[in-house]
Write a protein that binds this DNA or RNA. Sequence first.
DNA 1: GGGGGCGGAGTGAATGTTCAGTCCGATCCT
DNA 2: AGGATCGGACTGAACATTCACTCCGCCCCC
Lengths: 205, 205
Amino acid sequence: MHDTSPASAPLAGATDKRTSILRAAMTLIARNGFHGSPTAMIAAEAGVGAGTLYRYFADKDALIVAVHREVETRLNEWLQKDYPFGQSIRRRLDHYFIGLLRFFIDHPLEFKFLGQFYDSPYGVELRRDKIFSKPVGDAGCETIRGLLEQGVAEGIIKDLPLVLLFALFIGALTSAVRDHTHGFIDLHDGLQRRLADAFWDAIRQ
Amino acid sequence: MHDTSPASAPLAGATDKRTSILRAAMTLIARNGFHGSPTAMIAAEAGVGAGTLYRYFADKDALIVAVHREVETRLNEWLQKDYPFGQSIRRRLDHYFIGLLRFFIDHPLEFKFLGQFYDSPYGVELRRDKIFSKPVGDAGCETIRGLLEQGVAEGIIKDLPLVLLFALFIGALTSAVRDHTHGFIDLHDGLQRRLADAFWDAIRQ
DNA sequence: GGGGGCGGAGTGAATGTTCAGTCCGATCCT
DNA sequence: AGGATCGGACTGAACATTCACTCCGCCCCC
C-alpha cells in the first residue's frame, strides 16, 4: 500500500489531480454520504479516470482519511488566525466558538463532511482523542479543553466534567450550524454573538 | 406496495416475527449503520428467512421508516408519563430534557438509531417538521417548541429565534448522551440535573 | 390433503478494485 | 540534432463481490 504523502505523489502539475480528487470526494461525500459516493462518481467529478484514484490513494478508506486530514488542517489554520493570546478565558473561548461557527458557515461542505466522518467508524476514535488529549490547534496553540480546564480551576466556569462542558460547546455549535445549512435560520453576525453569549451563560459559574 | 400497519400483517403469533424484524433492524442499524446492515443480516438476527422480511415490509426503506415510527411512539409514551401539567415552564422543560436524557441513556440502541436516522435523507424533513410545527408529545401534550415560545413571550427565556433555542436544547442533550454511550462519562442522576441546569442558564433571560 | 406463511438459493444491478494497454515526455544513441 | 527507446502516469473496461429483492418449493396447520 502506498502512502498519501506528497513525497510519493507524482511531480509537477500532477499534484493537481490529487487535490482534484480530494475536493471531489469531499463534495460528493458531503452531499450524498459515504455510500452515496461511488469511486466512479468521485473520479468523474474530479475529471480523472476511475483507476487514477488508486494511484494516489491505497483504497477508498485511505482517500476518506486523507480528506479528513486536509479539512482539519485548514480548520486549524483558520482557528489560529488572530488568536487572542493573553486575553481573558472567555475571550479565548469566544474566539474558538465564533471561529468554528464562521468556518462551518463559510464552508458548509466541510461541515457536512466532518459530520459524516465523526459519526462513522472512522471518526469515533478521533473524537475520543480530541476530547481527552489532542490539541485542536496544531502546535503551540491552546486547546479548548485546556481553556475549559483553566476556567474551572479559576472558578469562573461551572465545576462540571470536562466532557460535559465540551458537549455543551460542540453540541450547541453543531446544532446551530446544521440548522443554518439546512436553511432553517440565517446565522448572521449578531446571532452568532448571542449564541456565544448563551453558551457562556451555560458554562459560567 | 403494501402497508406496514398491523392490519395487513399476518395474524396470530406471526406478529412476533414482525417485531423480531423491527428489533433486529434497529439493533443492527444502531450498531453498524444503514449500509452495514444488509437485509440478509437483519433476517438472520431476527431468526427468519431473508424473504420473510418482504412479507411484512415493502422494501428496506419501509422497514426503516417503520422502525423509526415504532421508536418514536415509545419515546412519546415515555415523555407523557408524569407530565407536570400546570407547573412552571422551567419545570416542564426540565421534564422533557431529563426525560429525553433518561430515555436515551436507558435505550442506547434507540438513541443511535435515531441519530443515524435524522442524519440520513430519511430524517431531514422530519427534523424540519419537528422544529417548526409537529408536537413531540403525540396528542394533547404540550410541545417543546410551545414551551420555549411561551417562555420567550413571558420574558423569562432569551429572545432568540426558536430554532436556536431548540438547537441549544437538542445539541447539548445529544452530545452529552453520545459521550455517555461512548463510555466517555457516566451520566448519573446528579450530572443529569446539573446539565439541565446549565441548559436552563443558557436560555434564561 | 390442500392452502398459505415461510425459507433460502438465486438474480440482476451496482460497487470497489485491478490490470493490460495507451500516450506523452524525457533520455539516450548515433 | 533527431529519431528510437523507454518509463510511468493515466485510462476504462473487466472482474469479483455484495446487496436488495424475487420466486418457487417445502411444510405446518387446519
